[in-house]
Amino acid sequence: MQYIVPILVAIMTLAVAAASATAVPADPEAGVAAVFPPWWQREHAAAAVAEADGLIVREGALPTILVVRPGRPGLAERLRAQGALLIVDPLAARGCFVPA
């Protein structure tokens, strides 16, 4: 029973990674969905977005999935440098934005 949460997190991470293989942002400069590690707090993810010079548009089903608009060009690369696991098209990832 003590292993259920880590197993669920691993399964969710793999599912998101598999789904995002075809979810590359069409126009990263128009906005992206940034997926940060699920063990981060929302504040940590928001701080990473701020450091990357991004503007949070909305939050996903998990507080570490954020739709972000750029403050200047090159947002996707800066988000990755700040710890984002995945950068995907916000329309392709819309299923991640409905809280359960």
Rank of each mutant, 00 (worst) to 15 (best):
D89E: 06
L8G: 14
A52W: 00
I87Y: 05
V88N: 11
L86A: 13
P99T: 06
V32I: 11
V35A: 14
P70L: 07
A19V: 01
V57K: 10
A15M: 14
E51Y: 03
L14W: 13
R94G: 00
P28H: 07
A10F: 12
A48W: 08
P70I: 03
Q82S: 12
A61K: 06
V35E: 06
L62M: 14
A33P: 08
A93Y: 06
V5W: 01
P37S: 09
A23E: 08
E29Y: 06
G54M: 01
A50S: 13
A100Q: 07
A26Y: 03
A33G: 11
W39L: 15
E59V: 15
L14Q: 12
A34D: 08
R94D: 15
G31I: 02
P63T: 07
D89L: 09
Y3G: 01
D27M: 06
G31R: 03
A33F: 10
G95C: 00
V98Q: 08
A21W: 12
P63S: 12
A50D: 10
H44E: 15
P70K: 08
I4L: 14
V49K: 03
P70T: 05
Y3W: 14
V9Y: 03
S20K: 01
T22Q: 12
Q82Y: 10
E59G: 09
V98G: 00
G74A: 06
A46M: 13
D53P: 00
M12I: 08
F36M: 08
G71L: 03
R72H: 11
T64S: 05
H44P: 00
A15G: 13
I4E: 13
G74L: 05
L79N: 04
R80T: 12
P73A: 04
R72C: 04
P99E: 09
T22E: 12
P70A: 07
L79S: 04
E77T: 14
D27Q: 13
A26M: 09
A93H: 10
P25K: 02
L62T: 10
A23Y: 01
P70S: 05
R69P: 00
A21Y: 08
V32P: 00
T13Y: 02
D89S: 10
G83K: 12
P73Q: 05
P73C: 09
T13S: 15
D53W: 02
I56M: 03
A48D: 08
A61Q: 07
R94E: 14
S20I: 01
R42T: 02
A76V: 01
L85N: 08
E59H: 13
V16A: 13
V88F: 00
A33M: 15
G31Q: 02
A46N: 10
E43T: 11
A45T: 04
V32L: 03
A50N: 07
G71D: 09
A15T: 13
A52M: 02
Q2P: 06
R78G: 03
H44R: 15
L75A: 04
A17P: 00
G74W: 05
F97N: 06
E59F: 11
A23M: 14
A100M: 06
I56C: 01
L75N: 01
A48Y: 09
G60V: 05
A18N: 11
L91M: 09
A21C: 05
I65C: 03
A100H: 08
R94C: 07
M1F: 14
G31E: 00
G71H: 01
V88L: 11
A45G: 09
V57G: 04
W39H: 13
I7S: 08
E43W: 01
